[in-house]
Write a protein that binds this DNA or RNA. Sequence first.
DNA 1: TGTTAGCACTCTGAGCGAGGGAGTGCTAAC
DNA 2: GTTAGCACTCCCTCGCTCAGAGTGCTAACA
Lengths: 357, 357
Amino acid sequence: MDLNERKLKILQAIVSDFISTSEPIGSRTLSKRPDIDLSPATIRNEMSDLEEMGYLTHPHTSAGRVPSDKAYRLYVDQLMKGSDLPEVNKQEISERLHKDADELDQTVEHAAQLLSEMTNLVSFAITPNRSESKISYINFLPVDESSVVLMIVCEDGKVTNSAIRMNSPYTEENLTLMSKVMTHNFKGKAVSAVLTENIAAMFESDMQALAGLAGSVVPSFMKTLEKMLNVDLYMDGYSNIFRLPEYSDVSKARNFLEAVTNKEQFTNVLVNRDQGLAITIGDENSEDLKDFALVTADYKVNGKLVGRLGVIGPKRMKYGEVTSVIKYITDNLSQTFEIPAPEEAAEESAEAEDNDK
Amino acid sequence: MDLNERKLKILQAIVSDFISTSEPIGSRTLSKRPDIDLSPATIRNEMSDLEEMGYLTHPHTSAGRVPSDKAYRLYVDQLMKGSDLPEVNKQEISERLHKDADELDQTVEHAAQLLSEMTNLVSFAITPNRSESKISYINFLPVDESSVVLMIVCEDGKVTNSAIRMNSPYTEENLTLMSKVMTHNFKGKAVSAVLTENIAAMFESDMQALAGLAGSVVPSFMKTLEKMLNVDLYMDGYSNIFRLPEYSDVSKARNFLEAVTNKEQFTNVLVNRDQGLAITIGDENSEDLKDFALVTADYKVNGKLVGRLGVIGPKRMKYGEVTSVIKYITDNLSQTFEIPAPEEAAEESAEAEDNDK
DNA sequence: TGTTAGCACTCTGAGCGAGGGAGTGCTAAC
DNA sequence: GTTAGCACTCCCTCGCTCAGAGTGCTAACA
C-alpha cells in the first residue's frame, strides 16, 4: 500500500485538525472541510488504510482518529506549511532582544522568556559550551588576609571567578607572580586542554618559591576551569503547560514537571541534540520525554560558540509557527552576538565620540 | 466566650489532624483520640463555639470542621509542638552543605535543594542584598580592541563583572589609570553610596585625558553596580506540590506555579518579609499567595550580610518539622559562611602547610 | 449546670442504568 | 472506485438512589 496524494491530503488534514483541537478526528468532520471533496465513507476507507500503515490510532471503536508519532514525523518532514512570522512579532523580538544586549547570559534569558510568551509553551535556553574557548589571561587578586579571588578571562570576553581560601599567608607579589606565570603558560590554550595539564608541576618548576601556595591554588584553579565548562540552563513558562487539555490530569502535569526540572538531566538532553534546527517527537525522545515534542535551534556567539534555544510541549504542537519563531529568535541572537568588523567599530566609535561632545 | 483549656485542646487536635489528613475532622473521629475523653456531642458543642469564634469553618452542613487562618495562627503561636530534628537528618544537612562550600551561590542553591527534599515542599533561597557592602577595588581589563571587562570586588569577596563595548580606542595605560583612580575614589564606600555619585564628573576632573572614554564606561559602571544589588532567587521542588491532594485540581496548581514563577514579584515578597524566623499564613500573605503558607529564616554571611531561605506550601503544613529543618539549615549556613578569626586562620594555615609537606 | 444519648435532618459521593451522540465497519448499490 | 445505508460499539452525561458521615437540637441524666 502506498501513500498516494489523497492519503497524504487526508493525513495532513487529520494532523493539523488534531493539533488545533486535540480531539480525535472523525470522517464526517473531515468530509466537511472545503479542501476535501470526499464522502465520509471514502474517508473511512482511507483512514482504515492509514491506520494499518501505522499513521493513525484509535482510542476506542467509536472515536475518531488520532495521529501517531510516525504521522507527526511525516507531517513535520513533508506536509507542514512553514508559516511566516507576522511583521509585528518580528519587530517585538528584535526590540526586546537588542535592549540590554551587552550581557550574553541576560540576553539569552530574555530570549527564552520571549519564546515562551510567543509560543505559549515551556521554553529553555542553554549557554554555549566553552570547552574550546581560549584563555586570554589569569589573574589572582587579594581580598583579605586569607582569601583571594581567581579570575580567568576567555578570548570571547567571558569572565569566570572563584574565591580561594588560602591556607598559607601570601603577599601581593606572590599573586602577581602567579598571575604572570600562569597567564604566560596558558594564554591561547583551550580550557579543555588546560584541564589536562599538570599544574602542580608548574609550581615546582616555574614558581618554586610559591610551592607552598599550590595546595590552596591548584584545586581551586581546576574547579574554576570546570565551572567555565558549565552550561547554564534557563527555562520559562512552566505554567503554560497547564492550559493545555492533555495536562488536565495532574499526574501527567507532574511527570512533565519532574522530567523538566531535573536540570542536570535535562541539560544533558539538550546538549546532545542534533545541531541546527532539530525536532524530536514522542518516542524519538528519551523515555521520560516520550509524550512530548522538542524543537530546538542553535545560535552563534562570535561566529563560533554555539548555544541552543527551544521549546518543549505536547506532540500536537504548531510546528510551523513554533519553528519560525525559534529560527527568527536564534538568527537574531546570532546577529546580536556577532563581533563587529574591527574597522567598522573604529568608525562608529569616532562618530559616538563626536556625538558625545 | 473564652478559649479555655478544653477548647484549645480540641482546636489543637483538629488542626494537627487536618494537617496530616487534609480531610475535614468530625466530632466522632475526635472523640476516639486517646487524649480527648469527651463524647461526640460535647465536642460538637465546643466545635460550634469555636466556629462562632472564627477558628473553624464548615465546607457544608454534613462535613467535619476545617481550621481557619486564625486557627493556624494560634496553632503556630501557642499550640504547636516544636519537633527536634533526628540526628540522621542533622548529619545529612551538615555533610551536604559543607561539601563544595567555597562558593556562596552554589552552597545556597544546595541548601534550597536539600530543604525541598526534606520537607517535600517547594523551597527557595535568596542571596544577600549587597547594597551596604563596601567596595574593595575596581579593575578594568582588556579583552580585545573594542571590549573591556569591568570587575568590581567587594570587601566580602564578591566579584561582579561586566563586558563593556568601548566606542573609542583605548590603551592598557588608560585602563590602569581608570582602575587606580576609581579604586582610590570608591574603596571602602558602600555600593548604594557609590550609585549616587557623579561619576561623569570624575572623568572631567581626575582623568581629563580619558574624558572620551566616559561615554562607554560610565553607563556600564552604573549598570554593574546595579547588578551587584540584584538578589538571586533559587527555587527547587516545584513538582512536590502536585503530590498534595489540595492541588489535584489543575487550575489551583497553575495558580500556584504562576504566583511562584514570577521571579521578580516573588523575590520582592521574600525580600520584604520580617527578619528571623517568619511564618505567614493564608491572608497574611499577598492576594496571589493567600492560599499558601510561607516559612522563612535568615542566614548570615560574615556575620553581617543576610540572605533568606524558606518554603512555600499549603496552609496545612507541618509547621513544627518544617521550622526545625529551616532553622537547622540556616544556622548551618551561617556557620559555613562565618569569617574565621584571623589568628585562628593563621594557626590553621601553618598546620595546613605542614600537612602538605 | 455541664455532659451525654438519641434522633431527625442535610449534604456528599459512589454506583447504576438509560439514552443520546459520535463514529466505525461492512455490505450492497451506483 | 465511490457512496449510501445500516447495524453496532463505545463513551459520556444525566438523573436517580442510597449509604455514610456529620451536624444541630432536644431531652434526660449525674
